[in-house]
Amino acid sequence: MGNHNFVQKSNLFSFSATRCLRNEYFHNDCHICIDLCPKGAIHLVRNKLTLFDNECIECAGCIGSCPSEAYEIESFDPNEFAVSFQAQNNPQISCKSTTPCLGVFDADHLLVMALRGEMVPVCDISHCGSCPLNENGKMENTIREHIRLANEFLVQIAIDKKIDIFEEIEVEATRRALFRKGFEKAKEVIADTPSEPQKSMTASHHALPNVRMPLKRVLLKNSLKEFVGSLEITSFSENSPLFFNKQIDFQACTNCGDCTQFCPTDALFPTSDKQGIYFSQGKCIGCGICEDICKTKAITSKEGFDLVSIAYERAEQLVHYDMVMCHECRCPYPYKGGDPICDRCEGYKKEFSNMFTLAKDM
């Protein structure tokens, strides 16, 4: 996820191929945006996600569901909106007045809005049922799931706030008219936008050197800092709906470094001497790449999360090895006890020992 992103654009809407988890790691099977797109504008071409700009209607409904912020729309930045939410006079967020489709927000955005002041967002989903974007109810279900996850997290950490839902049945014809009106407003934005528009908060964040963390996760961690000092409990033994934990089996790990190399957010990173591995809960987005790429299956998920570690991005050392010289191949390897012989030589010795049997011993 470097800064030299390959970006596909469709007027206001853009897709950064190198921020996409599936494009970053060949075996990743993320297909959230493909399933959600009401027009089927996102395709797999040679196992790489590709935006077909002639099919994209720039509804922005997929933006909130992308864990790595690969999608952006110039006319609206959900991160900027979340940060400035408390300055609004009305807590209601609605695609009729203040935002694009509410699919532009995920649970992180909603929590940032709720945690940064007294006002808690009220999500107006009364138009979802008759919305053309709500193909087979997918978009509405996704929006409801984001709200549910955010509220589940607030209950879990004992913060007395709740993101509410406002819903009234709306006539389909009226909603379709509003939908068309929304696209007319989008065209006006394009016409009024200078040739070099000012970068959004999200675009500016992604343009920084060596940035791999989604901005929405950075904002959520910063928002949590305001609360961790006042909470009675900050360490939890159960799983979190939003944050993830990992463990590494000392005996199974070969310290090959693949997990640290392919982690898209640097949640797993090597110790300074390259002989161990750290893990930062606050950086993990639960993509599962580390577990999939580990040849010995040494990395597994673990229950529990710690808010202080998450908010302040503290890291835990999962494994550390002393490097010793293998007495067979004379190469250094991570020592785990017993005879000083590396796994490769030990396996070779067991598998091909018959090749070295002397004739007198046969």
Rank of each mutant, 00 (worst) to 15 (best):
H4E: 14
Q8Y: 05
S14Q: 12
S16G: 03
S16Q: 10
A17E: 12
R19E: 03
R22I: 09
N23D: 03
Y25C: 10
F26D: 13
D29R: 15
C30P: 00
L36V: 13
L44F: 13
R46F: 07
T50S: 11
D53Y: 12
N54S: 14
A60D: 07
G61T: 11
C62V: 13
I63T: 05
G64W: 04
E69I: 10
A70R: 04
Y71Q: 06
F76M: 02
P78R: 05
E80K: 11
S84D: 14
Q86N: 06
N89C: 13
Q92W: 12
I93A: 07
T99E: 06
F105W: 02
F105A: 05
A107M: 06
D108P: 00
A114H: 01
N136F: 13
G137Q: 01
G137S: 07
I143Y: 02
I147V: 12
N151R: 02
N151P: 08
I157V: 10
K161W: 13
K162A: 11
K162D: 10
D164Y: 05
E167L: 03
A173E: 15
A177M: 02
A177V: 11
R180I: 14
R180M: 14
K181Y: 09
G182A: 09
K185Q: 03
E188Y: 15
A191S: 15
S195Y: 11
Q198T: 15
Q198I: 15
K199V: 10
T202I: 10
S204R: 06
H205K: 02
H205D: 04
L208W: 03
L215H: 02
K216Y: 04
S223D: 04
K225W: 11
K225A: 00
V228E: 06
V228C: 11
S230Q: 12
L231R: 07
E238Y: 06
N239V: 09
F243T: 00
Q247A: 01
D249P: 02
D249C: 11
F262M: 07
C263S: 07
T265I: 03
L268V: 11
F269Y: 03
S272A: 15
K274V: 10
Q275F: 13
Q275P: 00
G276E: 03
Y278W: 09
F279H: 08
S280Y: 08
G286C: 04
G286R: 05
C287A: 00
C287S: 08
D292C: 13
T296V: 14
K297F: 09
Y312S: 09
V319Q: 07
Y321E: 01
C326R: 07
C329S: 11
P334M: 00
G338L: 05
I341C: 03
D343C: 12
C345E: 00
Y348R: 15
F352N: 08
F352R: 07
F352H: 12
